[in-house]
Nucleic acid binder design. Structure first.
Lengths: 120, 120
DNA sequence: GGACATGCGCAACCGTTAGTTGCATGACGA
DNA sequence: TCGTCATGCAACTAACGGTTGCGCATGTCC
């Protein structure tokens, strides 16, 4: 019934700044804490902390080259996250649809018992 | 490009406890802070605070009856939230698809030793 | 090689938030 | 009226998102 959700993964994409960082990394291909912070309303250090979080849940990983640390999106993990968004959305959506159908059934009258409502 | 997202609405459903509360309210139809807290690993007071933020973004609203305060999900607002989940998911998904296509194109072009490297 | 710039990491600090405990109050049933 | 039950309010803690400041390593330019 209730969808299996990785809370850590969801929380990681729950933050607006981190979502924008993922957007940036996807469109640019890769980026450093400094380069990302230039396109964001927060400081480099804040970006660094977010990168740690994203790295911890496997949504990005880094390769150090000289004094720069390039981050890239892990596509498989982001795909997992997208799947979870879709799952939860679908679960809620079907709930809403069911409520709507019940409401319409009640509206129509009480003798049309073709489809069953089960929970109270 | 970047999807229009209501950060407040998203943050509201970004919290795992609040998501479970919405699940409970959807399946039970309605609930009080006390009744919800009985199915959750947090205290009644914590649930109350979450109900305040859910109410603030319009995802639930309450009707006071005697000494009880019954909360119900606002279906229209939850539908909006679901739509935003779907939007962000779709945006990332198309990004991932595009990257995949580009990767395949490059692979096809430079391919004289056709061993596909597989990650898993 | 030395001077300077750049990218990063670490630490201290602040405001907000998710959670707790404790207590007071208002509504209900016997 | 008395006890019970749901709620509300206040204080406190821990974690988080954010800042500023500093130190260190690497790269560049004479």
């Amino acid at each position: 019934m209730s969808v299996m959700v990785d809370d850590d993964l969801w929380s990681a994409v729950g933050d607006p700044t981190r979502r924008r960082m993922l957007d940036l990394l996807l469109s640019e291909g890769s980026g450093t804490a400094t380069s990302l912070s230039e396109h964001l309303p927060v400081t480099r250090q804040a970006v660094t902390k977010h990168l740690v979080v994203l790295d911890r849940v496997g949504l990005v990983h880094a390769t150090t080259a000289g004094r720069e640390k390039q981050f890239r999106v892990d596509q498989a993990q982001l795909a997992r996250a997208v799947a979870q968004l879709a799952d939860v959305g679908a679960a809620w959506d079907s709930r809403l649809q069911r409520i709507k159908r019940i409401a319409e059934t009640i509206q129509r009258g009480k003798d049309t018992n073709n489809e069953t409502e089960k929970k109270q």
